[in-house]
Every structure is written in C-alpha cells, then in structure tokens.
Design a protein around this nucleic acid. Structure first.
Lengths: 341, 341
DNA sequence: CTGTTAGCGCTTTCAC
DNA sequence: GTGAAAGCGCTAACAG
C-alpha cells in the first residue's frame, strides 16, 4: 500500500504538503501545487492509513456495540435491525461499528478491555436492565456512550428509548374505541424496565376511561410464546363475563402465543379475542391473521443515537445528557376488531 | 491511559524490557525483573494500546463483515445468528468483527476503502451470489477472506457452506420413508446458487427412488411467504392424483407460506400436506404445527470460517484454498407425517 | 506557501 | 539480561 511518502515523492513535494491538501486545512496551498498532489494521490492510488492517523490522534473511529444472544439461540428480532441501521448511521459519520459479545453474567471486563486498549471511542448500549452495571461502569469512567433503553431514572446519561408507555396507551385507546371494555395485558416480570413502562401505558388508558384494571387482567411471563398461551389458558378459566375481549401483549412473540392459545381454548384470534403486539417483528405481517402491533421505530432510534454520539465525541464540553423518547407507530392489521356481541 | 513508558518508569526498567515480558518472547528475562514489571503493569493499570501495536505491525486485528438488509427491512433469520457466532469466534482468536453495510448495487468501493485504509485484515463474505463480484475483487487483489457460500465452481477460494444438497436429499428420503410418492419442491429462482444445490438434492433423491420429477412438482419463487402460498394454489388446481402430498420448501419463510396456503386451499398442514422447511429460524418452533425443518449449522460454520481465516492470516504461504461443506440437521417436529389414505 | 521535525505507543534489532 | 534507538504512517507546530 502506498504511503504519504510515495505521494510526496511522486508529486515532488514534502509529506507535510500532502497532508495539508488532504486535510483541507486553512493552509493556503496554491491551486497548482494542490492539483499536483491530488494527481499524485490518484496515480499511486493512495488512501491515508487509518492506523497511522489513529495513533496520531489517539482515537479509533470505532463504536463498540455489544451483541446479545439470549438464552437458547434466541435473537431479538428488533435488535438485529437496530445493529444494521446503527452501522449505517455510523458510517455516514465516518465511524465503523465494532460488534462484540460478552458473557451475560460478567460484561464489565470486556468493556474494560475495549476501553483500555483504545479499541473504541465510544459505546452504544442496548438491552439495558435496571441499574445496568455497564452504564454505571461507563458513567464512573466518564467514557462516552449512548444507550438504547433506560436503566435508572436518577442517573444522568444520554439515552434514546421507545416510548412504550405512549405506545401502549395508544393501542389501548384504539381497542376502547373499537368497543372493548375488558382489556387484558401480558407483561414481562416486574423487574423489566421497558416492560414496566408498557404496563403504565396500559393502566393509564384504562383508568382514563374508568375501566377495570383488576389483577386478573394483568398477567406476567417471560418473553416467549408460552407466556401468551398460559395467559389465555388462565383467562379461559374465568367466568365468561370476566374474560377480556382484547389483549395487549408486551411483545410480538408473546402475541403469537396468545393467538395459539386463543385457538386452543376456543377463541377466534382477531375476532372473539383481539390481540395487539409490540415490536412489529418481521414475521408478524405473515401471521394468520396478520398481527396488529406497535412498530418499534428502530431506524429513527439508530439515527438519534448516532447523532447524540457525534455530539458527545465532537465537543469538548459535553452538554447536559439528554433523553429522547420515540413513540412507536400502531400498525393496524387483522388481529383487532370490535368485541363479539 | 498509561503507556508502556509509565510502566517502565514505575518498574525502573526500559520500555524494551516491558515489551519483552509482555510479549513473552524467548528473551531470557530473569524472574525477578519479570515480576517487577508485572507488578508495575498491575499498579498503573496498563494495557498495550492497540493502535500503537497495530501501526507497528501493520495490521488491524479486525475482520470485516458486511451486513445485508434485504429489501423491505427484511433480515435473514440465519445471518443474524451467524454474525453473533462469528464475532464470538473472532474474539477467541484475538480479533474483532467490524460490521459494515454497503449499497446493494455497488459493494466494491466499500470493500476497496476498507482495504486501502488498512481498516481490516480480512473479510468474511456472506450472502454470496453467482460470480459474486466481491469475491472476484478480493481474489484479484489477493486480499484474505473466507466466504460463507459458494460463488463459482471454477474459482479457487476458501469457502464454507451448508450442504444444501445433502440436507434436502435427507429430507426427501425421510418423506419417502414416511410413504410419500408425490413430493413437491418450492425453490428460488434459477440464478440462486444455494437454491440450485437444494434442488439437486431433491432431484437426486427422487430419481434414486424412481419417483416423479415432473415440472409441476418443482415450482420457483422469491424468498417470501407469497411464494409458498402461490405454489399451493397452483397444486390445488391440479387433478387430485397429481397433487403432491408433501413439499420441501427452500426456506422456512417459504414453508410458512405453504402452511398458510394449505389452510386456505383445504389441506391440513402436517396432515394432508406435509411440509419441510430449511433454516430452522427462531420462529419455526413456535408455528402451529411446529415446522419440521433442516437446521443450518450456523455455529459450526462460523467456527470453521474463523479457523480457516486464522490459517490464512498466520502462515505466509497460504495452502490450497479449501472448501468445507457442512450438512444441515433434520429437525423433526410436526409438519411431516405419512400421506393420507 | 512549504519543508523539517517531533512524536503518537509500540516492537524489535543491535549493542553492550 | 537489558537498554538505546529506529521506525511503522500520520498530523501539526514551527521555521523559514
């Protein structure tokens, strides 16, 4: 690979001059010399070596993003798209994404190593949990990062998240407008942070309309198909006038379980039992009936995150850490209709 | 961040000595000095800066992997797991994965740039196509890479692939053993390379048992749900004694379409119309009935690819480019049973 | 306007 | 056994 020296020799100038024209500094290079250099660059096929540049400027122009493979080969259908868009946005700003993995029980050493060796200039954190140790760790070290997802309302850090509360509120309002009066929800365990916001949205809308929010209507489970089926099993055991006619599932995956459970227990999904999911995962459009769901605005989130990151990385005096909530979009397909009767 | 100088000062030795003990060269460092250095390293919290190291050794210890977002937000359910395992394997060998994107119509400039700037030491190529221009490009420049997927039988390059032919052959044999005699297949368009191997496996098994391979049984379409439904629509219009009793779908996504189409046209998926898919995507286990499918051995493939890459990157005289085929595993669930009657 | 030069952090050859 | 020093490719302060 040609270096700056080759170009200098070829153009008959010094390496400094080459660097100047390439970095378009305010140095007044006369057009003639500049052209000479540019020609030489083209002739020898030169691009600045990024390692040399990085060493000099002590940066890496790499953003670390940790991948999360959930227990058994499970991939979060939202996060894979997220990573793609993140990479794309990063590239637009002259960065690249370094994707890495870590043992679920012990993330910190990996982050530590990446920082210490100067591998990355910043991180994007996803799949946050309550009091996420990674966020605490980075905050303590004042290492730049932006998170997709909240972790602790008392910590100040730059963060973008889906507004699950507003999304679910809208979904419930929609069901109410369809005529539903008993609306169930299947949530994640109480320690799930994004799950909690979604539940809040549910309760808010229900309260606003003076509807029943009894315990029987709010069930919880892990993020899998079984959780949905179990919930329907439970509801079908209730007296008929206490059974919900519509359900909000905390994720599309759970919604799939609801649809299966519905069939199993004598409901007609989308007819005698309406369902609304959350995520809009790729398969959801192909389910029968096609799933009405809240679309996670992944693309906007990625863009927003990278914009924040750029700000952090560019200005020396980082402004107040801000938090941006982005409202999911209700995608109306076939699983929500007026209640029977 | 502390540098090697800080350690040297702290330990009262020269930077060379520090480097020697850290790189465990055969230099005979007496245990006492070595310990002194190690203590100093710990005390100042030092890790070698990777940019310095990279510049010196003119490498980056980064593997480039291009992401592929198919048309409308579609993510290949296999490739996201692939990327995860690839990252994991790379890390085990002291590399990291740099994930990048490129415009579908014009990949080369992005690869070119990554090479020229010294950003990556090698590439892993996935989603290969016939005569894949990226492979031709890298071959011409003698830049190290390993591909997941074949491209041209006349080109010599290191490559790992799923043995679609063997997999489909096994699936068809299985259907035959169940008693099926008319077995259809839904393939991708003829220019799909991995699709062609899967078709070969189908035809081989059919021929071996002297079964019908008429044109009506081999249908083609894009990689989506519609392709599966269209195929069933076509078959249901055939005289009953020409309709297949079982179908091999070239992917799980297509298989989903078959299941929907089956219901729509009066078949019972898994009963009056057996279906076997390909991929074992995450959702397949949750379909009703659960999809019998060929599991892509993604983990093994990633490991094999990284092993090949390491060989390429380590030895100066790269051995013969080899090709490894890995046979998918038939995962028997609920969509294949003996034919009716 | 342009060139000389120092130095980013590291590895490694060559001397002592 | 250990250290001095060169140099990887680049940027930028400083001369001239």
């Amino acid at each position: 690979m040609p270096t700056i020296k080759d170009v200098a020799r070829e153009a008959g100038v010094s390496i400094a001059t080459v660097s100047y024209v390439l970095n378009k500094k305010d140095q007044n290079i006369p057009p003639h010399t500049r052209q000479q250099v540019l020609n030489a660059v083209k002739r020898v096929g030169y691009s600045p070596n990024i390692n040399g540049r990085n060493l000099k400027s002590s940066q890496s122009r790499l953003i670390g993003y940790a991948w999360h493979l959930l227990p058994p080969d499970q991939v979060n259908p939202v996060l894979d798209r997220f990573a793609y868009y993140l990479a794309q946005e990063a590239e637009a700003l002259g960065y690249h994404l370094l994707t890495f993995t870590y043992p679920r029980e012990d993330p910190l050493p990996v982050y530590q190593e990446l920082i210490q060796t100067g591998r990355v200039d910043a991180f994007v954190i996803a799949s946050t949990e309550v009091n996420d140790p990674r966020i605490r760790f980075l905050l303590d070290r004042e290492f730049p990062f932006v998170s997709f997802g909240r972790a602790n309302p008392n910590w100040q850090f730059p963060c973008v998240d889906t507004d699950g509360r507003a999304g679910v509120r809208e979904a419930v309002e929609y069901l109410i407008s369809l005529g539903h009066r008993r609306i169930g929800m299947i949530a994640w365990p109480e320690d799930s942070i994004s799950g909690s916001y979604r539940v809040e949205g549910d309760l808010e809308a229900l309260h606003a309309h003076g509807l029943n929010t009894s315990e029987d209507l709010l069930l919880r489970g892990e993020n899998n198909e079984t959780a949905g089926r179990n919930a329907v099993a439970h509801w079908s055991s209730l007296p008929i006038d206490q059974q919900p006619t519509a359900v909000i599932a905390v994720s599309d995956l759970v919604a799939v379980g609801v649809m299966h459970g519905a069939e199993e227990f004598g409901f007609v999904p989308g007819k005698t039992l309406s369902v609304i999911g959350f995520d809009d995962m790729y398969m959801s459009q192909y389910l029968r009936p096609a799933l009405t769901t809240l679309h996670q605005p992944i693309r906007e989130i990625s863009a927003e995150i990278m914009a924040m990151l750029e700000l952090l990385l560019s200005k020396d005096a980082p402004s107040e850490p801000s938090m941006r909530l982005i409202t999911p979009r209700l995608v109306i397909r076939e699983t929500a209709s007026p209640p029977p009767g």
